[in-house]
Every structure is written in C-alpha cells, then in structure tokens.
Simulated assay, not measured.
Amino acid sequence: MQQFPEHLLSGYRNFMSGRYNDERDRYRTLAEAGQNPHTLVVACCDSRAAPETIFDCGPGELFVVRNVANMVPPYEPDGQYHATSAAIEFAVQALKIPNIVIMGHGRCGGIKAALDPDMEPLSPGDFIGKWMGLVRPAADQIQSNDLMTASERQTALERVSIRNSISNLRTFPYVRALEEQGKVLLHGAWFDISTGELWIMDAKTGDFGRPSDRSAAPLEDSEPAA
C-alpha cells in the first residue's frame, strides 16, 4: 500500500492539537451554519503565495481560487469546462461575497513563461501555454521593450495581468451588474515574496502603491525589482 506523505500527517496532528483545538467551536459553527466568507481571492498556485497565510485569515474568512498566474478568463458560456468561472459564479451568486481580490505576486512562473518566446511546452497538451495566452498581447508588447530589464518586464506584466483579470471579471454580467449597484467591489493586489511587501491597486488609476503610502508614485516608477 502506498504510504501517505508523513510530513503531511505530522502537520495534520499539529493542526488538530493546535489551531483546531483552539478554534473548535468556530469549526463546528462553520460546519453547521455553512460558510460566509467576506472575500473571494483569485490567487496563484505558487506555494509561496498562500492568501490565508499572507492575510492571516482563519477558517471561513476567505473563498480562495488558485490557478496558474492568478488569472480570470473572460466570460464564455460555451458549454466547456471552466473551473475558475465556476468558482466565481458560486462565490458571487450563491455566497454573495462582496469583495473580489485578484492577487498576483513577484517571480511568478506563469508570467515568466508568457514572456519567454522560446519556452517549450511541458506536455503535448501545452495547457500552461494556452492558459497564458490570456495575456499574450500584453506579453508581446512588454517583451519588445528593450529599455526594461528582464525583472522589470516581469514585474510589469504581473501588474498588467492583474488589471486584465479585473477587466475580464467585468465581462461576467452578474459581476458587472453588482459592481454598478455597489454590491461587489473589485480589488487588485501584488505580493513581493522576497520582501513581504503588499502593493494595492488604486481602483481609479490602476497604479499600485503600498497601503502605508497610497500617495506614492506609480509602481512601475518606484517599486523594487521582482
């Protein structure tokens, strides 16, 4: 019989004796009453950028969708399989979550792949290549900018991708309608893995700034290299 990873079992035992034991009543309430998260976070699969850890949230607070490069595709009711769109539909329509955060991060592997014209498919299906096609037009423009370094180009596309996903969110009729009614708010954020800094997108200008200094110059002019 194949052995389950021991480090996961050890972590589970620590969880049961620690956090679960401390929050036992909360877990029971969530089990009986159901979930009522305050925020939907679309985040990257990257193991270094877990929203629950970054925002120090407990059980039931966040509804998290993770995919390669934290992207939202446009609304396409074509009868195909759309995991991210299905999660958004459930979060907005069923759970009535009022906040949606697209959270990118520095050194994103998916974004790096989108900027590499010589990247070979990892498998015959090239699922990552097709998925990153969502930002291909922006990637081509940024990649052609010889005045930027490789790290600056990656940082730029990580931010542009966040704005692109927010635009795609507005192609969902119910998201657009609820935003216009003030019942849903769309947010962008970027996390620097190396420094722990969180940058927040200004909803009006699209510029990124640190929460402690929202009046700072636009991110592209002032941020550290990713």
Results as ranks from 00 to 15, higher is better:
R210F: 00
Y27L: 12
W131F: 09
R170C: 01
Q141V: 13
N67T: 05
L178M: 09
A31E: 09
Y81Q: 09
C45T: 02
P77V: 07
I128C: 06
V65Q: 09
L147R: 14
R163M: 13
S47F: 02
V92A: 09
G11N: 11
T155D: 14
V68T: 10
I193Y: 03
G133Y: 04
D207C: 05
D207I: 10
D46Y: 00
D78P: 11
D118W: 05
P74T: 07
A83F: 01
A203E: 14
R24A: 14
A156E: 13
D116Y: 08
E32I: 08
V42I: 12
R163D: 13
R153I: 06
R153D: 12
M103A: 06
E179N: 06
I100Y: 00
R19C: 00
M132P: 04
F4I: 14
A189D: 00
S17M: 02
E158A: 15
I162E: 04
E120L: 07
E76R: 13
E152W: 09
A43K: 00
L9E: 13
L157C: 10
Y20A: 12
I128W: 09
L122H: 04
Q143T: 09
T29D: 15
G133F: 03
G106Y: 02
A43W: 01
I142Y: 06
A139G: 04
A226L: 04
E120Y: 00
W199H: 10
A86D: 01
V184W: 07
C44I: 01
A216R: 14
F90P: 00
R159F: 09
D22F: 03
K112E: 13
G79S: 05
A217S: 15
D146K: 14
H82L: 12
G110A: 08
D56E: 08
A114R: 12
L115H: 10
R19N: 00
E32A: 15
F191M: 03
A216W: 06
I142K: 08
H187M: 02
V160F: 12
G125L: 15
G11Q: 08
P74S: 04
P173Q: 15
H7L: 02
A177I: 06
A203F: 07
M71I: 08
D22M: 01
Q2V: 07
E152D: 15
I166D: 00
V101F: 02
G109C: 06
